[in-house]
Design a protein around this nucleic acid. Sequence first.
DNA 1: GCTGATGATAAGCGCATGCATATTGACTTG
DNA 2: CAAGTCAATATGCATGCGCTTATCATCAGC
Lengths: 137, 137
Amino acid sequence: MDSERPDLGAMVMRLGRRLIAMEEPILERHGVSMWAYVVLTALSGSEGPTRTQAALAQSIGADKTRLIPILDDLQKRGLIEREPDPADRRARLLALTEEGKEKQRAIQKEIRTAENDLLAGNKEKDAFVRALRDLSR
Amino acid sequence: MDSERPDLGAMVMRLGRRLIAMEEPILERHGVSMWAYVVLTALSGSEGPTRTQAALAQSIGADKTRLIPILDDLQKRGLIEREPDPADRRARLLALTEEGKEKQRAIQKEIRTAENDLLAGNKEKDAFVRALRDLSR
DNA sequence: GCTGATGATAAGCGCATGCATATTGACTTG
DNA sequence: CAAGTCAATATGCATGCGCTTATCATCAGC
């Protein structure tokens, strides 16, 4: 292992800033915030209708109080639905609307394209992505 | 390229949080903040005495006004020296003291060990680190 | 010697975040 | 049915951070 490499944390953070800078204009064009996009993506990932909001907050690393206004906004704009769980009416079942799915797919497609451009020049990109998937669990 | 992978940004951020969580107890044990450690590392990297504070802030991705109290603190604790540049007395030459170098090396050593533990189980760690170095420029 | 530019520093504003608490409604258990 | 628990939500507070502006000292060009 190369003992002269910069700290992993420093490199990861640098790359993170770079990716965010790359994504920002795309998200702006679609009129959604970073967190809103993260929520849409999380909901599109879980096939089952939904889990609780607290679990969602946990899974995306957001504070649950911060999630509320984001969900309010997404609901107001018709991108998600919040319906009381028939089995436990305290909980709200979160689900993307068709429009929400559409929007998420459209944004992700653009982001994927931009990411691939970023990776394009790197010979070990496949190994990089595989290792990243593993390490980011 | 696997079109089913999670967003790069999401994975990188997750990993970043994981690394920070890993580093925090180490930094705490040494009594330095994350930013202070980043400053120490940046100064230990540049062999020459120093550049300007604004350039330092830029290079580590910090706001230049935020740097001031951090440098004040590091200086007060004898980890860095700030002397007026004889060539341009507006600027301050920043340099690690012996104690500062020592502290940076000690912290980095622990962090490197923890990083290697994290990477240990991954077969493609070398390719990962190489690609990360490249992509985080 | 003026004048405009640059570096360090200080101070104030605003946003985002996270925490802790209170409230309300609904489920669960004895 | 009463008590206790839990989910969602609202609210207030403190913090950390970045941006902007202002000040002071120094430099560089004219």
